[in-house]
Amino acid sequence: MSEGGSRGHPAIVCRCMDITEEEMLMAFKVMVRFLGTADPDTYRRISSATTGYCQGRGCLQHMQRYLARGMRELGISLDMDRLVPKKRPPLQPVPMGLFYNPEVLEE
């Protein structure tokens, strides 16, 4: 696990949303303390990790490791299925115009 970035700069966990390691650790603490839960769907929404342009390609694994480590430290048993938030389309960003189809609006 990272101990902070290089030359005093913070380690960036989610590059799309600029989320640092400190923010990931804080988000985990907030989730557990204020909501009493530790699930990936809540974790990604509180931390904002995986919600940016690449939709988690760069940071999902990191988020999962922070989640797993945090749960282990709390002594909560880990169900591996529970580490994965729901995958959604599109596979990559797609312009809205591609789906334009006036027929669907006919009454």
Partner: peptide
């Protein structure tokens, strides 16, 4: 996706170039 995109683009044509990141 078709319905939401079509209404959006009809109302605001420039939105046709904006990328969708996630659908649920």
């Amino acid at each position: 996706i078709e319905k939401a995109s079509t209404i959006t683009v009809k109302l605001m044509p420039v939105m046709r170039a904006v990328n969708i990141l996630r659908v649920w």
